[in-house]
Structures are given as C-alpha cells and as structure tokens.
Amino acid sequence: MTALALALLATITVSPGPDAQERLQAALIEAAPGDTVRLGPGRFELTDGLSLDVDKVTVRGAGRDATVLSFKGQKGAGEGLLVTSDDVVLRDFAVEDSKGDGIKSKGADRIVYYNLRVEWTGGPKETNGAYGVYPVSSTDVLVDKVLVRGASDAGIYVGQSKNIVVRNSVAEKNVAGIEIENSYYADVHGNVARHNTGGILVFDLPNLPQMGGHSIRVFDNQVTDNDTPNFAPKGNIVASVPMGTGVMVMANRNVHVFGNTLANNASSNVMLIGYRQPFDDKNYNPLIRQVVIRDNKHGRAGFAPSFPGGAQLAGAMGGALPPVFWDGTGEAVVVAETDVPTLTLGLPSPSTPLDQAKPSLAKFDAARAAEPAPVVLPASMEAAIR
C-alpha cells in the first residue's frame, strides 16, 4: 500500500455516553474501506441493533471486558450487530444481552471474530438470543479467542459456509457450545466446551441452500462437564440434544474427531447418529459417512444418559454406557480408540423406531478414512490479529 493510500485511511473513535446509539451507527455507516472504528473503553447502552455493510472495516474495542456493547435496553428483537460486508475484522469488545443473536454475519467473506465476548448475563434462559457469534453463508471464517455464554441455540455457530477455523475459544452454559452446520472444510481445535447441554456438534440438515456437510476436523479440544439442562425453545433442532453430550456428529461426511479430552459427559462423550426427523428433500442424505473417532482421552461418561431409553440401556450395562455411542446407521464409521468400547443400537436406518434397536458393543476395522487436509485461510486474515 502506498504512503498516500495509508494516509487516506481513518480511525473513527466512538466513546460511551449520551447518544451512543446514533454516534456508533453513524460511524459504521460513514466508514470507508480500510478504516478502523475504534470503540473506547466503557459501557455502551444501546437501544437498537447495529449494522455494518462496508467492506474492509475493522471494529476494535479496548478489550472484551473493557468495551461492552450492552443491548439490555434493546427495543427490537434483532441481533446486536449484523455484518453483511467482506474483509471485516471484529475484535476486542463484548456484546451483552441482545434480544436476538449476539453478532451475526451473512454472506461476509474473510470475516474475523477475534478476542470477543458474547454473553447473556442472566444465565441460561429460553428467552436468550439463539446464537452468540453466527457467521453464515460465508467463505473463509476465523473465530479465535472468543467466549460465549448463555445462547439458547449455539454459542459459536458456523452455518452453510466453507473454509472455517474455530480455535482457542470457550463456549459454556449454552445449549450447543460450538456447532458446525451444513458446512465444508472446517478445523475446530484448541477450544474449551464445558457446561453446555452439548459440547461440539457437527450437523447437516435438509431443506437448506447448502447441504452435504463434509471435511471437518475436531481435534485437541477439551469437551467436559456438559451438564446444563436443555433450554432451547421447543421446535429447534438443538432442543433434541441430550444433556450431557460431548461431541455429536449427525448426517455428515468425512468427519474426524481426534486428540480431544472428553470427560464427565453424562449421556455420551461421542454420539454418532443419523437425522431422525421426517424430511421431504430428495437431495438430503440423513446418514453419517466416513466418520473417524481416534486417539481421544476419555474420562467418565454415560453415567446418566438423558435420551429416550438411555437410562434403561445404562441399567442393562451395569449402570453406565460406554463413552462412544452410535445408532448403527451410516457407513465407513471407524472408532479406533484404545480400550474404549462403543455401544451401537444396530438400527438399519434413522427412521427405524428405537424399540427395534439391537444394542451391542461394536467392533470396528482398524482401517481409517483419509483425514481432511488442514484449512488454510488467507494470510490477510492471520495478519489482522497480529
């Protein structure tokens, strides 16, 4: 970039205080590509959602505990901050108590979420917003050093996107801690998912513009103590996630779960299932395929399963289920865990009633499907957080 171009870049500083809503939204509207909107330390009391639709803008606070965008007085039901432009960096601030999603980006390529906190300060409630950070329909997504608490659907959610990295983040006291849905090529690593209903979910759902999720790596995470009762609104897909689920893979292809620490998840450390709801999408595949579970560290699991029939199964197996649970559907499922048994229900299809299950301890061929290649994001995204 030339010296003249650098000179034309601006930093727009906005501080808390009277008329913060109008001043902050004006700064987001008036920013030019390459500008930084700097949020001063303190608490911004906001009454409406904010939006950004200018490319190549950085929104930067003084720290995720120092700069707080509070939406406790929000009058509408929308998200706290909506981004619909490319090459945006969001960093070093917090969003609290939005009526809808905390921060949503849609169709925003090369989006960076860095060192953010999104929280519903009243604790887990059905009336909390659905998603904490919510990038959707995007290419190249980085979520790094983000903390989310209290989302009534998923704390960190990436949907219908590709080339995704979620790392070094903490999700706690959400329904789903981290969720990758209908997406291609994702690395989820170095995160902590604890005290959620379910820790990390990899889903594929029907009737969406992008389906056939594949090539997901979930590795080197700590997924423990997921013990929060499910508080999702009725009808949401995550309302069916059993309390005490560590990692759940549903209707996805080429998913590798390895090197994680999994413990104190009352239903299962790892749950592998097909999509069981009725659907009419002829292009949708409800089965898991080419799923590999290997080299994880398993602690206590399956001691109080909350899914239908789980308590009876646990009783029949001496009081607890094995750490890995598979409904029996799908193909090329590999569990290569040392001395870790896997319970399979032996269901021929996801639509088979549970009362026709034939539970048994499964044995697997040690052969493994090829691991997806690591996700490589554009260098500009990594440079933005240095």
Rank of each mutant, 00 (worst) to 15 (best):
A3I: 12
L6P: 02
T13S: 11
Q21T: 11
R38G: 05
R38Q: 10
G40R: 06
G40F: 01
G42Q: 12
R43N: 12
E45T: 13
L46F: 10
D53V: 07
V54K: 01
V54P: 02
V54F: 01
K56A: 13
V57L: 00
R60E: 12
G63L: 13
D65N: 15
D65I: 15
L69D: 13
S70V: 11
G78N: 01
V83G: 02
D86S: 05
D87A: 10
V89G: 03
R91I: 10
F93P: 15
D97A: 13
G102I: 04
I103P: 04
K106M: 06
K106P: 00
D109C: 11
Y114C: 14
V118H: 13
W120P: 04
G123S: 08
K125F: 12
T127M: 15
N128F: 11
T139R: 14
L142R: 11
V143A: 08
V146A: 07
V148Y: 08
R149N: 05
G150N: 02
I156T: 01
Y157I: 01
V158F: 06
I164Y: 05
V166G: 01
S169Y: 00
A171Q: 08
A171V: 02
E172T: 11
G177T: 07
E179R: 08
I180S: 00
G190Q: 06
G190W: 01
A193H: 05
H195G: 10
V202D: 01
F203S: 02
P206H: 09
Q210T: 15
M211V: 14
G212N: 10
R217N: 03
D220C: 00
N221M: 02
N230E: 07
A232P: 09
V238K: 12
P242S: 09
M243I: 05
V249P: 07
H256Q: 00
F258P: 08
A263W: 02
N265R: 00
A266C: 12
N269Q: 07
Y275W: 06
Q277G: 00
F279I: 02
Y284H: 11
N285A: 07
R300A: 14
F303C: 06
A304G: 06
S306R: 12
P308S: 11
Q312I: 12
L313F: 08
L321Q: 05
L321Y: 10
P323G: 04
V324Q: 03
W326D: 05
W326V: 05
E331H: 11
V333L: 12
V335A: 10
T338V: 05
V340I: 00
P341C: 09
P348E: 11
S351C: 06
S351Q: 04
L354V: 00
L354N: 12
Q356H: 15
A357P: 11
K363D: 09
A366E: 14
A369M: 13
E371P: 01
A373C: 11
V375C: 13
L377E: 01
A379C: 06
A384C: 14
